[in-house]
Structure formats: C-alpha cells, structure tokens
C-alpha cells in the first residue's frame, strides 16, 4: 500500500528583488522527497531558512512547486485543479506557527473553526456543524464557552488549541504542523505537544511535525528528516538519528542543543558562516562549517547512502567508510546529483 502523503523531488525557488530585473533566486527546496504513512509521526528539523516551512506549504498546495510532485495515496496532486486541491486539503490539514496570527481577528473562534467544515464538508447542516465543533473543542481541551470569543481575548496556548481544532474538525488523515509551539511559552509548549500526541493516539491522525526543537521531535515522532539548505541530509527513525547521527550537520545540531545541567560546559561549535540559500555551494551545502570536509565535498554534491533499515545520509564520509558494508548509494533524488 502506498504511503498516505508523499513528496517526490520537490524543487521550489523564489525570485528576489523588486521591479523588472529579478535576477537573484532563492532556492528554498532542492529535490526534497519524503513519505508519511497512515498514523505515522515524522519530524522535520533544521535551522531557520532551510526550507522547512516552504515544504509544509507545498504539501498543502499553498505553494506550487517548480518541479516534483505531491502524491496523495500514490496519486499525483495537480496543483492547478481546484477539486484535487480540495481533496488534498480534506485529507491533509495544517497547524500554523503563529497561533494568534493564524486566526482572523474579526471572526469568533467558532466561525474560524467552522471554515474548513463549510468549505470541505458542505454535506453537514449548520446544527451538525455546531455539534462537531463543540465536540472538537472538547477534544483539544478548550472550554465550549470560548467558542463565541475573539482571538484577542484568548491566550496564545488557547489560540493554538483553537488552531488545532480547526485543523482536525474536518477529520483529516494527517496534520502538517509548522513550528506549532515555537511561538509559545515553554510551559505551554509541553501541553500542546502532549495534545498532539494524544490526538494521534485517539483519532489516529498522522503528524508531520516541523520544528527546530530537537527534544520535542524526539518525544513525538517515529521518524525524522534533517534538512539543510533546501535538502534532506539525513533521514531515519528517531532512535537511529538521535543516538547515532551520521551527517556532520546532524551531529552539529545535536551537540549544539543546550542541556540544563549545572556544571556542564557549553558545547564547542565550529566557526564559519552558514552557506546562503541565494548561492548554495557547488558541492555539499555544508562545506563551510563541516569539521571533516574533504576535497570531493567542494566540487560535486554528495550522493545519498541508504541502509536497508531506512537510515539515509547525504555525505561522502559515509559513502567512503561504509560502502563496503552497506548497499550501494541510492539517491533520494537524481536531480540533486547533477553538478550546478
């Protein structure tokens, strides 16, 4: 059976600059592929500007990719076909980063949550809609009385619960969560993450969880993708990636995580400028900061090595040291290997 939601070789770039001469181009996604099974939770981590949010928007059909495809149960979604997009959004919903900003300030919570029902499930009557919304409010732990309130009367955490309610009310199979907790207080973050974990258990909804918070991903997800400069550089199940990271960038991410432990020294991090998405390096995108950089890294983008257990890495070091043990490199995307 094919995965619920798949991305194949997505390429997205944005023109930059004003006026008639738009020369420079920001390459947000460079051949990204992923798949999400039914009820699965997949995390996407990476620094800001690596294309995580763009990926989320492409998956929802909010941004049309330059090339590549989004597949829903193995069928490609046509980005220009309104019915196909509606079907995609019936199955896949999104939770946004800014809890307050993602709710229209002039609509009540009830009206905001009603929107996906009205647009995606027109078969429900107004009273059925109301019942569904009330039920959903309970599911996300919001008082029914808040339904008639406006976003500015709610706390950030309550707003995010309302945002999750809006996302699940039309009974999607999967939620794409774009940094859903990064705008919240630390104490509230845990509640929201637990809510998502509960929802997954109770209604079996799949979660694609985008975050730069590694511990949250470790807590919530089964598998994780590490993104750097518009590419997936490592992919595997959470235990593999977090206990035995292979790509130097993943290692850097993990080691730069600050742990609250008295007496523990601050992590030693490599110097060097992060590469710019405006002009990605010819070879590996991480050459600027990589502690184990080799000559080959500077010229040709490294291929992807994939273990039989699904742990994949885009790094020359790993091809070299493991090529004798592991299966030959299977590229995540053919396009990414072409020198630019």
């Amino acid at each position: 059976m094919s995965a619920l939601l798949q991305a194949l070789d997505l390429e997205v770039s944005f023109p930059l600059g004003q006026g008639w001469t738009r020369r420079s181009v920001l390459r947000a996604l460079r051949g990204v592929s992923l798949s999400l099974g039914r009820g699965e939770a997949v995390g996407i981590v990476g620094e800001s500007g690596c294309g995580k949010s763009t990926l989320a928007r492409v998956l929802l059909g909010l941004i049309k990719p330059d090339s590549g495809q989004v597949l829903l149960e193995g069928r490609a979604v046509a980005h220009h076909d309104r019915d196909a997009l509606l079907e995609l959004r019936r199955r896949v919903q999104m939770v946004f980063q800014d809890p307050r900003g993602s709710l229209n300030p002039r609509l009540t919570i009830l009206e905001s949550i009603a929107e996906p029902l009205r647009c995606l499930r027109p078969e429900f009557s107004a009273s059925e809609r109301r019942m569904l919304i009330m039920h959903t409010l309970e599911q996300v732990g919001l008082d029914r009385g808040l339904a008639s309130r406006y976003p500015h009367e709610l706390s950030g955490g309550q707003c995010q619960r309302a945002g999750i309610a809006r996302a699940i009310v039309a009974k999607p199979d999967c939620l794409v969560c774009d940094e859903p907790v990064s705008a919240l207080d630390l104490s509230i973050q845990g509640q929201i993450v637990n809510l998502l974990a509960d929802l997954r258990r109770e209604i079996g909804v799949g979660v694609l969880f985008i975050s730069h918070n590694l511990s949250v991903v470790r807590h919530l997800c089964d598998r994780v993708l590490v993104m750097h400069l518009g590419q997936v550089v490592e992919e595997g199940n959470v235990v593999q990636v977090f206990t035995a990271p292979r790509h130097p960038y993943t290692q850097l991410l993990l080691s730069s995580e600050l742990v609250a432990e008295p007496g523990r020294p601050l992590p030693a991090l490599p110097d060097g400028e992060p590469a710019s998405p405006l002009s990605p390096p010819a070879g590996c995108s991480f050459v600027g900061r990589c502690p184990v950089v080799m000559e080959a890294c500077r010229h040709e983008p490294p291929p992807v090595t994939r273990d039989p257990d699904g742990h994949a890495t885009r790094c020359y070091r790993w091809t070299d040291s493991t090529s004798s043990i592991h299966s030959p490199a299977i590229p995540l995307s053919t396009d990414a290997r072409r020198p630019r």
């Binding site: 909010l62 959004r89 919903q93 946004f96 647009c119 995606l120 809006r166 039309a170």
Partner: peptide, 8 residues
C-alpha cells in the same frame, strides 16, 4: 493562508 488551507 490558513483560510486557503481550509479550502476557501
């Protein structure tokens, strides 16, 4: 964007 994502 959220409204578009809701199918509006």
């Amino acid at each position: 964007e959220a409204s578009v994502a809701c199918g509006a």
